[in-house]
Each structure stands twice: as C-alpha cells, then as structure tokens.
C-alpha cells in the first residue's frame, strides 16, 4: 500500500513537473515567436529598415493582442522554477500587479489595431505607446539570467 502511494505521489509530481515545464516553454515561445517577432516587424518599419505597411502593422499588433488573452494563464503556482525561466518571483508575489501590466498591453494593442495607422507619421506614436509596455513589465517582472 505504501509503495503504491509513493508511486502515485511520484507520478503526480512528475505530471505536475511536466505541466509546469510546459507552462514555461509555452510562455517563452509565445513571448519570443509571437510578441518578439511582431515587434521585429514593427521596429524595422519604425527604424525605416522596412517600408511602412498598414496591413503588416495591424497584423503585428493583432498577434500581440492575441497573446495577451492567454499569456496570463501560463504562470500557474509552481512554475516559478523547474525550467529555464527568467520570470521574476515578483510575478507570484504580486500577481494582480503583473496581470494589470498585461491588461494594459492588451488595451494598447487593441487600440493600435483599431487605429490602423494610415502612414508612418500616424504609426510612430502608436508604436511608441505599444512598445513602452515591454519594459514597463520587464522592469518589475523579469530577471536577467545570461
């Protein structure tokens, strides 16, 4: 009986460990492959390395906005560690503050999609408003590990 309980506990630990590892890799993938990649497109247009294109800008803002809808669910209790993560422990100490930053990012990207800036002059302030969210959150909730 005791062995059986140990086995159950071990499986439970393993499953939760795997689940948390999934949360860590999922949230990293979203941030890098969706948000980071979109930011790459937007920043290149802002820097003039790429011609400004309204459709491309709106698509990038929309991709970011989509991420904000699920991103907050990827920080379950227990996923503070257990993988290669640069999430700060402050996220779990202040989950409301973290979610508020995420909500602000959601609002700003939704407003950017709605604005659909017609040209680069209209785009620049909208881009600035959205881009400010990155460091506003990282300042508090991300630690440097490399």
């Amino acid at each position: 009986m005791r062995k059986f309980l140990y086995a159950i506990a071990a499986v439970g630990l393993l499953v939760s460990g795997v689940a948390h590892a999934d949360a860590i890799s999922d949230r990293k993938a979203l941030m890098k492959e969706k948000v980071g990649a979109s930011m790459g497109v937007l920043a290149k247009m802002a820097k003039g390395e790429m011609d400004y294109d309204t459709a491309a800008a709106v698509a990038a803002f929309q991709t970011m906005n989509d991420v904000t809808k699920t991103f907050g669910d990827l920080f379950p209790a227990g996923s503070e560690t257990g993988g290669d993560t640069t999430a700060s422990p402050k996220i779990w100490e202040d989950m409301d503050g973290f979610k508020a930053k995420l909500a602000k990012f959601g609002e700003d990207t939704a407003a950017a999609v709605a604005a659909a800036p017609a040209d680069k002059d209209a785009f620049m302030p909208v881009f600035g408003q959205v881009a400010g969210n990155c460091k506003a959150c990282h300042e508090m909730y991300r630690v440097q590990k490399n």
Binding site: K32, G40, C134, K135, H138, E139, V143, Q144
Partner: peptide
C-alpha cells in the same frame, strides 16, 4: 546604440530590471 535608444535587443527582446532606468 539602438538598444540604448529604444530598449530593444537585436532579437527584439526588451530591456528589463534596473537596466530600464539606465536605458
């Protein structure tokens, strides 16, 4: 230079922690 101006790395990761103030 662009990182110091904008806070974005070449991979478009963003500056964090105490470096935000510095940037």
């Amino acid at each position: 230079a662009y990182y110091l101006e904008s806070g974005f790395t070449p991979e478009f990761d963003a500056v964090g922690g105490t470096m935000v103030e510095v940037q």
